[in-house]
């Protein structure tokens, strides 16, 4: 195991019957690093994210945190390990308030084992203020814009101490202004809060703005792992389209 990485996946393989979704993917994440996990449709990006988050379980392979092997059997365990996610579908609850969405799956109770709405509301307000997000906390999610929903989803992922945040297409279906705000928030998470991020995206130009490194998947396999400083948008697109940079045989 490499010492520069705090989180690693070793030969992660995921099979659905005879279909190979991920095949022997080995990768590592450094502290305060943003990784762009890119690839064409059905490349296996979302499957890998779901395994790191404990929603799906690897058929073969292991995860390591701080050099120690970890079994991520459920999203609850992932959260305890300091890993959280913002899914492409956001995993929000449209009929419920911002407070309930922030605490979804981990509602807090008082000493009498009754839901402590007052404490949850207070924590939600503090969390949103820390992230400079302005949303009325009792408003239902269905009454918020796409950008605000995305902000709630990100805030929820940061409720507890997070070391690794997984973001699946965080800017899909957002306006230019909303997209800029989300990218600015992502930069802040890395720089001010010291969080590492694995960012899944389709728009390479957009992703290129914020990431430090690219991991490219194709047909469930890792075909490239490159520092941003050593590549370009054109080269990444070429790897995705041709499986290698133009004019080169890329292994």
């Amino acid at each position: 195991m490499s010492k520069e990485y705090f989180f690693e996946g070793h030969e992660i393989t995921k099979m659905y019957g005879a279909v190979v979704a991920n095949y022997k993917i080995t990768f590592g994440v450094k502290p305060r690093e943003i990784i762009g996990l890119v690839g064409d449709n059905a490349a296996g990006k979302s499957t890998l994210i779901k395994q790191i988050m404990g929603v799906e379980h690897p058929t073969e392979g292991d995860f390591f945190l701080d050099g120690q092997p970890v079994k991520i059997n459920s999203p609850m365990i992932a959260k305890k390990l300091g890993i959280n996610s913002v899914y492409q579908e956001l995993a929000l609850f449209p009929h419920l308030s911002v407070v309930e969405n922030i605490f979804a799956g981990e509602l807090q109770c008082n000493k009498l084992r009754l839901l402590d709405w007052k404490a949850m509301k207070k924590k939600t307000i503090e969390l949103l203020e820390r992230l400079k997000i302005e949303i009325p906390v009792e408003r239902s999610i269905k009454n918020l814009s796409g950008g605000k929903r995305q902000e709630v989803a990100i805030a929820r992922a940061l409720l507890h101490n997070v070391r690794l945040l997984l973001m699946d297409e965080p800017t899909a279906a957002l306006s230019v202004k909303e997209r800029e705000k989300i990218f600015s928030l992502i930069r802040d998470l890395k720089e001010k809060h010291g969080i590492s991020i694995i960012l899944v995206g389709h728009n390479i130009e957009e992703v290129f703005e914020v990431v430090d490194r690219f991991i490219v998947l194709s047909n469930g396999r890792k075909i490239a792992d490159i520092e941003k400083s050593q590549t370009s948008v054109k080269e990444i697109v070429s790897i995705i389209v041709h499986g290698s940079p133009v004019g080169e045989s890329f292994n």
Partner: peptide, 25 residues
């Protein structure tokens, strides 16, 4: 339904079953 977790969780499942699964319910 307002104050007990086991009851309140009904709303989460009904609002979005997929989100409920993803959040570990």
């Amino acid at each position: 339904l307002k104050k007990i977790k086991a009851f309140r969780e009904f709303y989460f499942v009904g609002s979005s079953e997929n989100s409920a699964k993803l959040t570990g319910l």
